[in-house]
Amino acid sequence: MSFVFYVFKKDFHSELRNRYSINSLLMFVMITISIVLFGIVSETSDSLVLSGVLWIVIFFSSMTGLSRSFVNEEEKGTTLFLQLNSKPLHVFLGKFLLNILLMLFINCVTILLYFFFVSDFQVKNFSIFFLTLFLGTFSISLSSTFIASIVAKANTKGALFPILSFPILIPIFISVISATKISVEGKSFSFASSDFQILISYILVIFSASILFFDFIWKE
């Protein structure tokens, strides 16, 4: 586990100094929320629609920043340095850890801005809402890290990431949007339990697939 932390620490230092991912994520969140505000202007919007819009903001911000974890290494040519100094699994888990941290931070900012500016969005069951947010963040970070590792090896990295991500992330978005709607409607926990089951199963499947296949992706 300590090896994972060392990869995370190296990437965290790099990110703090470059601020490439964090800046692009933050800019994207602010721009998207501004566009949502321009779109709804003074009209009263349904909380159910706004819960879907919230996840659209989160989806596109994750598409902007999370692919950088592996793409940056490929573009700078530092992949070989990592390959020569670490096991593939440690690299994957280290980068996944950083992506979770980034997504948690960005999602906190997104939620705060969303609550502050989009007054029509009112959550009635916060325990469901925050659990959805946590599981959603975890599963998006996990699948994005895995997809980024594949995309980094391709020539058309930028375009390929959202295209590949969309079908893989669909199960997450169906579940998180549904669970967010339940939290907005103020229903009890049992109504959202099937969505959480899907999210947890999804995490287990993608995590197993990542661990099994990452060695082959990492080594050309």
């Binding site: 300590s2 090896f3 060392y6 990869v7 190296k10 230092h13 790099s14 100094r17 470059n18 700078k76 040519g77 530092t78 070989l80 340095f81 020569l84 100094n85 670490s86 440690h90």
Partner: peptide
């Protein structure tokens, strides 16, 4: 073989030591 521009030699070597 490329190194990390944003890290120092000490940080590179610390990473290698740890790994």
């Amino acid at each position: 073989l490329q190194l990390y521009d944003e890290l120092t030699p000490t940080e590179h070597l610390e990473f290698c030591c740890n790994m």
